[in-house]
Amino acid sequence: MTTPVLEVTGLYRFFGGLPAVRDVSMRIPAGERRLLLGPNGAGKTTFFNLIAGDFPPSQGEIRIFGQNVTRKSANQRTHLGMARTYQIITLFSKNTLLHNVVISLVGLREIRFNPWSDLRRQTPLWDEARATLALVGLEHLADRTVAETSYGERRRLEIAMALAQKPKLLLLDEPLAGLSADERQDVQRLLQSIPRDVTIVMIEHDMDVALAFADVITVMQHGQVVVEGSRADVVADPRTREVYLGH
């Protein structure tokens, strides 16, 4: 059996005595599209933050590409081939979209320690950033600052910054939240076009989108996994209705 891309065992995270994530275990094989469902406050984002290394788990183990990263820093994990987007947009708002993507590209390159060469002259980086923006349909806005763009454009920039790093494991936290119907379709198409060798874990509230996208669905509530299985299984499971649809 091949090693899973992401393997989490017995994960806990307490915030002031309250468990936001409680005994979560998960195995995600290479290439899978995994969906995390669950009501507000279920602990989905906290789970992402634990995987990404924003803070350590209170208990449990996290393995990425077979490596135990539980004690590794967020930046070390990123260098293993993981990228993420944020539910609350986290961009460099005074910089141009192009600049944002360049910062993302530089993060994985040795040049990031260069204190001397002018970053503006690293033409290949800027070309690559432009190409990445084109991928998400933002090329025409490349030279605008983030502050001058709409919410939907920022959401796409979030995705562009993650894709720029050519990750093998991609964590998407509600990438469609707050988008118009048209924008949703664009982003959905974009996500469909991501090659299959990239493993994707996505948090999403919209059931239709979710079902069209996912291979396997995990439903969380109160920090715990309630149901896990194929689309059909999860939809048919009465607990899903109780937890999610009934919410």
Binding site: A52, G53, D54, S73, A74, N75, T78, H79, A83, R84, Y86, T90, L91, F92, S93, K94, I103, S104, G107, L108, R112, M161, Q165
Partner: peptide, 11 residues
């Protein structure tokens, strides 16, 4: 500007 994002980007 964004220390958390910078960490996530590999810095």
């Amino acid at each position: 500007d964004q220390p958390r994002r910078m960490r996530a980007l590999g810095y």
